[in-house]
Amino acid sequence: ETQAGIKEEIRRQEFLLNSLHRDLQGGIKDLSKEERLWEVQRILTALKRKLR
């Protein structure tokens, strides 16, 4: 995994995270989306740690 590859994956995950946040802010309670949001946040945290 290169730095560029990790950064690209971070961009993808952040896009997905923002999309999930928008969907959930629409007021629709969706447990699967909430679980996915937490999963994406965990992935992002792990990726950012790899960059250090």
Rank of each mutant, 00 (worst) to 15 (best):
R42S: 07
R22D: 07
E8W: 03
A4S: 08
I28T: 08
Q25F: 05
N18H: 13
S19T: 08
Q3M: 14
V40G: 01
K7L: 14
L16G: 00
L44R: 00
T45Y: 07
G26V: 07
L51H: 01
G26P: 08
L44H: 00
L47S: 00
L16C: 13
E35K: 14
E34T: 10
K29L: 10
R11K: 09
L44E: 00
K48C: 04
I6N: 01
W38Q: 13
T45S: 11
L24R: 02
E1N: 09
R22Y: 06
R42C: 13
S19K: 11
F15N: 15
K29H: 11
E35Y: 11
L47E: 00
E14W: 08
R42D: 05
K7T: 05
K7I: 14
D23W: 09
Q13I: 15
Q3N: 07
I43A: 06
T45Q: 14
A46R: 05
R11S: 05
R52M: 10
I28Y: 07
Q13E: 04
L31Q: 12
D30K: 02
E9G: 02
R22W: 05
W38K: 14
K7G: 03
I6K: 01
A46C: 14
K7M: 14
R22C: 14
L17K: 04
E34Q: 14
K7H: 06
L20V: 01
D30W: 03
Q13V: 15
I28D: 11
S19E: 14
Q25Y: 05
L37P: 00
G27H: 05
K29F: 14
T45C: 13
Q25A: 13
Q25P: 03
I28H: 08
K48G: 03
G5A: 14
A4W: 10
G27A: 08
R52C: 12
D23P: 02
I28R: 07
F15V: 14
R36D: 05
I28M: 08
V40A: 06
W38G: 07
T2H: 07
L17F: 09
E14L: 11
I28F: 07
L24Y: 06
L31S: 12
L31I: 12
V40Q: 02
G26I: 07
E8T: 03
L51Y: 03
Q25W: 07
E35R: 13
A4P: 04
F15Y: 11
E14M: 09
L44V: 05
L51W: 03
I43N: 07
F15W: 09
L37V: 06
R36N: 03
Q13K: 04
R11V: 06
L24W: 03
Q3Y: 07
E34W: 15
W38F: 11
G27N: 08
D23E: 13
R36S: 07
G27C: 05
S32G: 10
E34N: 05
Q13G: 03
T2Q: 08
G26H: 09
R49K: 12
S19L: 13
V40K: 01
L24M: 08
H21E: 11
T2D: 10
A46D: 14
R52W: 07
L17S: 02
L47A: 00
L51A: 02
Q25T: 09
R49G: 08
L37H: 07
Q3S: 07
T2Y: 09
H21T: 14
K29E: 06
G26T: 13
A46Q: 11
E39Q: 07
L24P: 02
E35F: 08
E8A: 12
A4T: 06
D23R: 03
D30T: 03
L16D: 02
E8Q: 08
Q25N: 06
E9R: 07
R42H: 05
K50D: 03
K33Y: 10
F15K: 15
E1G: 08
R42Y: 05
S32D: 12
A46V: 05
A46I: 10
R36L: 14
A4G: 06
R42Q: 12
V40E: 02
R42F: 04
R22T: 07
K50C: 11
E1V: 09
R52K: 11
L47F: 01
G5Q: 14
L17V: 09
I43W: 03
K33N: 05
L51D: 01
S32Q: 14
T45W: 09
T2L: 08
T2R: 09
I28L: 09
L31H: 12
L51N: 01
E35Q: 11
T2A: 12
H21Y: 15
N18V: 11
R49I: 13
R22S: 08
T2F: 11
E8L: 07
K29T: 08
G5D: 12
L16T: 02
K29Y: 13
R42K: 12
E39D: 05
I10H: 01
S19H: 05
T2V: 09
E9M: 10
K33G: 04
D23G: 04
R11Y: 04
Q25V: 14
S32L: 13
Q3R: 10
Q13Y: 15
I28P: 11
F15P: 01
F15S: 15
L31N: 11
L17G: 02
D30P: 02
A46P: 00
R22G: 04
L44D: 00
L31K: 13
A46M: 10
G27W: 06
S32M: 12
R11L: 07
E14I: 12
E34A: 08
I43T: 09
L44A: 00
A4E: 13
V40Y: 03
K7E: 10
T45N: 12
G26Y: 09
R12P: 00
F15C: 15
W38P: 01
Q25S: 06
H21W: 15
S32N: 10
I10V: 02
D30Y: 02
R42W: 05
